[in-house]
Amino acid sequence: MRQTMSPELRRRETISGYLFLLPSLVFFIGFVVIPMVMCVATSFTDANMNSNEVDHFVGLANYIELWQDPVFLKALVNTIIIVVVSVPVVTVFSLWVASAIHKMKEAPLSFFRVVFYLPVVTGSVAVTVVWKWMYNNYYGIFNYLLKGVGLIEKNINWLGDPRYALGCIIIILLTTSVGQPIVLYVSALSNVDQTLIEAAEVDGATNFQTFWRIKWPQIMPTTLYILVITTINSFQCFALIQLLTSGGPNYATETVMYYIYYTAFKLFRFGYGNAMGVILAIFIAVLSAVQFRLAREK
């Protein structure tokens, strides 16, 4: 039917198609595409935050400076640590929770889905301030509880100690990252072909075998999607840092996203900040591509 479209119909479809797209395209081009282009373009200039001043083209100077900037390198290492820890933990954790709850009745299933999504909905600011209180040196419950069970002898300044600060941040990040993957895995697991599982059970397959041989390949696209979104989220870890540690102590929790913000808002180096943004985007794109490739091969 579609192949026999007359030129007249095709023309009409094109016009009406673009008319329907127009409102959305205005916003998409105006507030997504243009900033993207600006991000790349200004990364080759010495632009500051004042849009009235003329930007000077500086070539690759910003990019060269990045690799000699110890704070950026530290931020990059921290960001990679966050990604390397949180992505596998989030994926395995949410897969386990989803397998444990997906066969439940509607009420408990909804309950658990909502509970694990709660930290996301609560909002990063509310979540962060309460964790800040819980981590507090004097009135925080962590010091109280850990002293109570005898794990530590005296209070630890969790967020002020370079040895613990990044770990503390990762813990909060984990609680705010599992909600969406759990919802996705629950839906993927309930869509797995039941006849295959029954057939395998008749053949005497163990639960482990059914999972590995039948369910795992079928939920692979979901796993892939979860890997990608969790990677992107972890790379963008910002609110926690800004509200809890401002990158400190001694750059122990500096992340790329926070450093971009710092460069643009505190140092007013717009072009330099955008160069970092470009590098961050490239990192995420490469990592997502690698994950895709690896998952495809399996």
């Binding site: 998409f28 997504v32 595409v33 900033p35 993207m36 600006m38 991000c39 200004t42 990608v228 992107i232 790379f235 963008q236 910002f238 996203m257 971009i260 913000y261 643009a264 717009f270 900040g273 955008n274 943004g277 470009v278 961050l280 985007a281 995420i284 794109a285 997502s288």
Partner: peptide, 12 residues
């Protein structure tokens, strides 16, 4: 565009 980090475009 969806695969790109949203926060990066906010500075520009």
């Amino acid at each position: 565009a969806m695969a790109l980090p949203k926060q990066v475009i906010l500075i520009p």
